[in-house]
Design a binder for these strands. Structure first.
Length: 422
RNA sequence: GGAGAGGUGGCUGAGCGGCUGAAAGCGGCACCCUGCUAAGGUGUUAUACUGGUAACGGUAUCGAGGGUUCGAAUCCCUCCCUCUCCGCCA
């Protein structure tokens, strides 16, 4: 969320950001509501000041056994008036918050302005696309042949786009989780977190999923809780409401969680295999940093995610997403896309974002630069490191062999206890 | 799920409906004292919004939201969370 004062004082900048993002939030009422809010505040606070001082007088009069009836009657009327204006203020502020919480973050100056995914800029390509002298299969065929995934079983117990990993397939998933967590903890200095997979409404608001994207989330009705769409949500909000000190930053967390997404509006898209699922596993990295360092930290974060793909020896590219494609809460976002030979396309396996103070303001995560200094909002960042299903697609397809077996990437062999899946 | 206790500032912890934005202590900061260290003294030490060029004001905030009252940290209601005991359970 952007700061109310910032929006007021930089209204054109905000309008431009909304336009560049092709976002539809309606800002037309913002200014008049803002003006009205301050006029009402001035009015009601004056009345309250008078009430406070007269109440003091009443206390004095009573102490001296005097008669305060006239003043009490006057204040009774003032009280009614205050209540009326307070109600009005509440309404105006609600309307204002409604607009405010739908305004996306301002894109960083290094974000290309664009209208869609074709305007994303490829800034790096890494690795060799494997060549083969046999006919390459898509991952769903490989997985079925080797008994790694039960697609029908998942559909039977939950519905379409839910899958079940079986045998070596389940072990491959677990190996990837362990490998990634170990890498981030031991090589990159993150602290491992295992958070709740279910969160409350306030938490979903904190990272920007609500109110705008409620339809995308699975909601547990009787308790009004949500299945997490990404570990970003519980892990970032772990520090909600906290006052941090400058010395303890940057704080680096990594977490494995399943992720649940309704994918409303995406029906019929990528329905085959593991491309798009309602539930998938992901290892996530989250950073809480000093605003002065957040852009450096963003580049480092990208590197930490790239390390996973490099260790797995999977070819990938890095995109600097354009204004139309970056997420609602992000100021800038890199996507990592792995190349997979079976489906013959780039697959997004990671989004690496800097949210600046946008989430910290919603979740109220602050720090003091030094003792006695004014509190400031931290900057939050996160990156997948990585999402499992598409990583598994790339492993199965890129490492497949003519006999139908799949070589195990070197770094995973110890975790799986095999060099080849057959 | 049942019974009880409790949620106050960075922390600990007081708080008869008005003099409490909140005692006291700890911690922090500044200054003083001291040959160094240790100790001591004095002062200072919340956040947000709002008015003002500023100086400096105003309002709100004691888990959250309502209510009673001229006036609520203090009384009433609802909810949330923590702890203890019981029940149930991986």
């Amino acid at each position: 969320m952007l700061d109310l004062k910032f929006i007021r004082e930089n209204f054109e900048k905000v309008q431009k950001a909304v336009k560049d993002r092709h976002d539809s939030v309606d800002l037309s009422k913002f200014t008049s509501l803002e003006v009205e809010r301050r006029a009402l505040l001035a009015q009601v606070e004056k009345l309250k000041a008078r009430r406070n001082s007269v109440s003091q007088e009443i206390a004095q009069i009573k102490k001296n056994k005097g008669n305060a009836e006239a003043k009490i009657t006057e204040m009774r009327e003032a009280g009614a008036e205050i209540k009326k204006i307070d109600d009005k203020v509440r309404q105006v502020e609600e309307a204002l918050l409604q607009i405010q919480s739908f305004i996306p973050n301002i894109p960083h100056s290094s974000v290309p302005v664009g209208a869609g995914e074709t305007d994303n800029v490829t800034i790096k390509t890494w690795g060799e696309i494997p060549k083969s002298n046999f006919v390459l299969k898509p991952h769903w065929e490989i997985a079925e042949n080797l008994g790694l995934i039960d697609f029908e079983g998942g559909a039977r117990v939950a519905g379409s786009s839910f899958v079940t990993f079986t045998g070596k397939g389940a072990k491959l998933a677990r190996a990837l989780i362990n490998f990634m967590l170990d890498l981030h903890v031991e090589k990159h200095g993150y602290t491992e977190i295992s958070p709740p997979f279910v969160v409350n409404r306030q938490t979903m608001f904190g990272t920007g999923q609500l109110p705008k994207f409620e339809d995308d989330a699975y909601r547990i009705d009787p308790d009004d809780l949500f299945l997490i769409p990404t570990a970003e949500v519980p892990v970032t909000n772990l520090l909600a409401g906290k006052m941090l000190s400058a010395q303890e930053m940057p704080i680096l967390y990594t977490a494995y969680t399943p992720c649940f997404r309704r994918e409303a509006g995406a029906y019929g898209k990528d329905t085959k295999g593991l491309m798009r699922l309602h539930q998938f596993d992901k290892v996530e990295m989250v950073k809480f940093v000093d605003p002065e360092t957040s852009w450096d930290e963003h580049e480092k974060l990208l590197k930490d995610a790239e390390d996973v793909l490099q260790a797995l020896e999977l070819p990938y590219r890095v995109l600097n997403l354009c204004t139309a494609d970056i997420g609602f809460s992000a100021a800038k976002c890199y996507d990592l896309e792995v190349w997979s030979v079976g489906v013959d396309r780039w697959l997004e396996v990671s989004s690496c974002s800097n949210f600046e103070a946008f989430q910290a303001r919603r979740a109220n995560i602050r720090f003091r630069r030094e003792k006695g200094a004014k509190p400031e909002f931290v900057h939050t960042l996160n990156s997948s490191g990585l999402a499992l299903p598409r990583t598994i697609i790339a492993i199965l397809e890129n490492y497949q062999q003519a006999d139908g077996s799949v070589k195990v990437p070197k770094v995973l062999q110890g975790f799986i206890g095999a060099e080849v899946l057959r």
